[in-house]
Design a binder for these strands. Sequence first.
DNA 1: TTGTACGCGTTATCAA
DNA 2: TTGATAACGCGTACAA
Lengths: 333, 333
Amino acid sequence: MATIKDIAQAAGVSLATVSRVINDGPKVGKETRKRVKRIMEEMGYRPNANARALVTKRSASLGVVLAELHDPFFAMLAHGVETVTRKNNVQILLSAGSIEQDTERRAIEILLEHRVEAMVVHSKALDDQTLIDFAKQIPGFVLINRYIPEIANRCVWLDNVTGGRLMAEYAIGQGHKSLAVISSQYRIDDPNHRLQGIREAMKAAGIDLPESMIEYASPDQEGGELAMQNLLATGAKFTSVLAYNDAMASGAMTMLQDHGISVPDDVSVVGYDDVLLAKYCRPKLTTLRYPIEMMAAKAAELALKYASAIQPEEGLTFKYTPTIVKRDSLTRV
Amino acid sequence: MATIKDIAQAAGVSLATVSRVINDGPKVGKETRKRVKRIMEEMGYRPNANARALVTKRSASLGVVLAELHDPFFAMLAHGVETVTRKNNVQILLSAGSIEQDTERRAIEILLEHRVEAMVVHSKALDDQTLIDFAKQIPGFVLINRYIPEIANRCVWLDNVTGGRLMAEYAIGQGHKSLAVISSQYRIDDPNHRLQGIREAMKAAGIDLPESMIEYASPDQEGGELAMQNLLATGAKFTSVLAYNDAMASGAMTMLQDHGISVPDDVSVVGYDDVLLAKYCRPKLTTLRYPIEMMAAKAAELALKYASAIQPEEGLTFKYTPTIVKRDSLTRV
DNA sequence: TTGTACGCGTTATCAA
DNA sequence: TTGATAACGCGTACAA
């Protein structure tokens, strides 16, 4: 591949001049500029981003750490980031970290080695201190879906406690008095917070939530089916089910329907996340909107801003609150 | 950030020695190696991937060009690529190209500037010749979801003609004699090929397919609803509908149900792609499995292989054929 | 076993 | 308006 040197030679000028032409720098003769451009074209010249990054210490790339790409949720996240990187002419460097300490740390380190300017990180496995250390070390380091008080202005997160509360309050407001809950078996913050919110709302309404009405399973369609199966097996009575996410809600609905139980006429179901399938499944899912795409865009903007020497103000906070999306899977009782 | 020079100084050795330690090179004293490693650890040293790429002319990264990340289909594609890059310790550099000539070309050029070793490209807008030129220029250039005879061994693609034929043959085999078709309004190859396959199968069965039984709309849920609405409005009679993809099929089912028409009892529906929602929607969608994840993994493997000087044999071809996934949206009639 | 010195492709500083 | 030239951080012959 042709280098700047080849171009200079072919054009009969110096490296410096070519460099100026490439970067639209000033002080280049009109004629010279034209000629150099033509030759670059002819020789199919492409600037070497690596060499450039080396000398400028800026890589025009933003790193993204996430778990599984085929999860629609992460796809939305990536898309949110992409909308802002595109606007800023920045490339995305992906690093997958499958919710394990070692791989998550490694994912971050790899991005560091590539000297990405900024970084949007979705980490559930690493402990607070490790992330705080990274944040101190990397100006453009922003966490998404996680809140750590010490680095609050680097966190873009969803208030899951309020989210849980909203789910329960809505169901209760629609007359439901006996609720079941389907939660995730992974004891990370998210399910804990959502559950906490649900508990708060139910307590405020004077409704009991015995542990027997909570089922834990893997946070996907199969988990939802399994959890519902277990719930039904206990013979417990309930008029509505609050699920950890839409996939579980969908699984729960399937299992209910397989048992000849109508949704929402016999049992109502509420999801969480509002991913694509919430609109596609039947009945359409009443759920909580998790504005992940918007949040991811915000995170990317912040990361880029912080990276370009604009240091964060101390008091800032980027908390988002989910909102109820009323569709067809919950009915008044 | 500490450089190799800082480490050398701190450890009282030369650059070369440190470099050898980093790359697990031979001929380094056991003691020295240990000491250097300790100091690297202490100083938080991270090799600079850009500098390394510059001198080795290898970037340990694979570029991916695709349209929209939030489309589950592309999310699967990205995931397929990711499974093999992970195994090979290669990073993914993303470049989105939203099905427009200029952005697609630009996306490829950007990856080129980053000197990615290999490239998996999903391009629908660029013309054959442009892609052929890129392929000739870049050893690790592989196309996915597209077939160009001149560079057959760089193409990983799905046989959509056969796919269309399979859909129609299956419906016909189940006794359906009056079929409607919902196609995409974008006149790119994919819908054309699928339609062609459908026509072939119907012709072979001696069934007519008048143009009035084909509706064209945008290839998403809304498009599916709209197309079905139009179909119903014409008053035409049909016992089954073949859709361009699962999203359209899902939209069509919704619209049918809204009109009190039962699926599959009154009208059967067949999708294409077998994305997540095919399992989630009700009734579960009978559809064609598009093994995009496997294909993407294959493409990534090929790209990496070709990039590492192993040049493709001439005769090779990477054609995949979809298969029918029988679920609940089509019934015998 | 270790060190020296050059080159990778580019930008940026200083002269001319 | 242009041109030398010194970095940038690293790998690697070659020498010691």
